[in-house]
Design a protein around this nucleic acid. Structure first.
Lengths: 204, 204, 204, 204
DNA sequence: TATGAATGAGAGTTCATTCAT
DNA sequence: AATGAATGAACTCTCATTCAT
């Protein structure tokens, strides 16, 4: 079965290139990142990259998709466990804190793409944003089904939740807050959201 | 007083360059923006830009500062009028919706700088973030002085308010929401915040 | 006799590659032609070409030789039939018109090689030129033996005849003359040559 | 008048670049010629070439036009003097011999363009071919006006004359004939043409 | 023998910056 | 002060060729 082995090798190399590319793109941005350097760091020849990706742009997009998958998987994982809404919102918050810490490069790349000028990159980054909203909306709907809350517009509310977790965390980090101090705010933020939704505070 | 006249001329030219630069940087991003084109659009010679700005980087920074001033002035203006906290939060929300619409270029430039890779740009963009938080914190403290609310950590709360306004609005716009539908959410968002802060809903 | 069979197979593959190469070289020129594409069109692996030809240059030379053989065979064939000089010159002219039409790619490749910058290619293309002259010279000598004409310098005259047929036809084609209008000039050109040689016009 | 001086300087530089480019293109062909090297040989910076020519292709075309002008001027000059047709045909022949010797680079570039694969280059080279034919046609018509000859199709005849001079000379050179031996054939070729046209040989 | 993945030299082109005028 | 011609570093991408399988 050399075909399958080859295919696995190829996919492994692809992933490897994407990893190095992610690092460089995060460090320097799309324009300043250097294909030669990415190849060098990946331990392959300069031309080899073009056997795996059509051009620099496609490599960047592939990397964006990879980041999106990874991040979404992490967030989904954090919300997979059962529990009441407060617990799950706390889990969501903590998951984002962890991601923002461990994958800060990815977040920078993602935000740059989301608010940058390249249309294709924005489109790709927007998909992740939509996925985040969808995942949170699902959690909210489950809570609603359990009569924990009552919401009119689930999607808008989900976006508010996302702003109070992801955006809040990113801003706080930019302002210099440590991971620890951020984690300490998980409960409080979850309470803020629940109260905001009109749900009376539940005793911890 | 030729000196002063000269000084005024010089400042006017500077502002003029910054304006054209803002347009190009917003349109193309820092790397893709072309100094020659900016000069041409500003109606001055290529070399002249370097009499006003040390290099491309400094021009970008000056433009960032200009954007920050303009935006902060708009937000300050929106919060200047009196009224209870709910009203002022609504005003804040509406002000951001307007800004995001009318100065969307500036927002993109600002967000790119905030989450981009250039350290100097991040530092500058962070200042604006800090200023926003400070302005909101002041509003919150005034409300607290009037016993409308009670908050422990004013700065963190201010950042939450900012996330629920600015970040929320930007995300919503990226997802395709219109200015109108956004404006319709001002009251609701303000209520969400007030409830989140533990304040019983006030009759409108 | 597997050896001979193998040898035949090998020669067949070689010819096949040359054919595809001729097409690509004629279409794009030596530099722009792509070895990978030639291999693909020939239905063989990229590396296989190098088992048949040392490098791109050698492949081009082999193709030049192939073109030369084909063309010379066509011209020889046209002159093989008997007849007086006028008839044979007409045949020569018509043969070149046909070749220029049906093998215009080959002519372009040949002319590019003849007047191009690559020394090796020029040398190869010059051989064909010499062969043409030799063939024509032979015809002239036969006519001389039959006392149809009297010439001092056969080779120079042959070159003049070649210029008035091949070069004339190629130029006319570049200037847009159709195959038909060219063919109509066969008799006239032959007469021109004969008169040029000092031979009184023969009644048709 | 700095404007005019500048304009003259600019034109001088342009001509200078074209000269060096002609040399390189003749030596290596379009694809192999190196813009960097052309710049270097012209004693200017690599980027400077792009202030004078949009790209490599345009530089090549400009050079083709320059060659065409130069060659056509030489041929026109040779035919300017009065004299009977025989004399003028000899002058034409000698002019081409001289050109082929002194500007052999130009001839190679021109022929490569004429029979090469690049459509734009062919179009440009064809113009020169047309001009040659036109100049010769004019000479023939003048002779006809003086009743020296009688021709039906002037253009076709002009092309025959061109083939018997330019193409003949180029072929002869490729076959190794020296300038001297070529020059010695001027009279004979002119006679060949005149006889070919049906004109009784004039006593020298 | 046949293959095609991998390689890396190489080249056209852009553009921030300089500096003579 | 203002200019813009000149510069050359830098970068993406192509493709002939190699070689392990």
């Amino acid at each position: 079965m050399p075909k399958i082995v080859d295919e696995q090798m190829r996919e492994a190399t692809r992933q490897h290139i994407i990893h190095e590319a992610a690092h460089e793109f995060a460090r320097l941005g799309f324009d300043q990142a250097n294909i030669n350097l990415i190849a060098e760091k990946a331990g392959i020849g300069k031309g080899t990259i073009y056997l795996y990706f059509e051009n620099k742009r496609e490599l960047f997009l592939a990397m964006l998709r990879f980041i999106a998958q990874t991040q979404l998987a992490a967030i989904r994982g954090a919300l997979a466990q059962n529990g009441d809404l407060q617990t799950r919102l706390e889990q969501l918050f903590l998951a984002f804190v962890r991601l923002a810490e461990e994958e800060s490069d990815s977040f920078n790349v993602y935000m740059s793409a989301l608010y940058g000028v390249n249309r294709a990159f924005r489109t790709e980054a927007t998909k992740l944003l939509r996925d985040y909203v969808a995942v949170i909306a699902m959690v909210l709907e489950e809570a609603q089904a359990r009569h924990e809350i009552h919401i009119d517009d689930v999607d808008t509310t989900a976006l508010m939740v996302l702003s109070l977790t992801e955006s809040f965390i990113l801003s706080a980090r930019v302002l210099g807050q440590s991971q620890q101090s951020l984690m300490a705010q998980a409960t409080r933020t979850a309470q803020f959201i629940l109260q905001g939704l009109g749900t009376p505070l539940q005793p911890e």
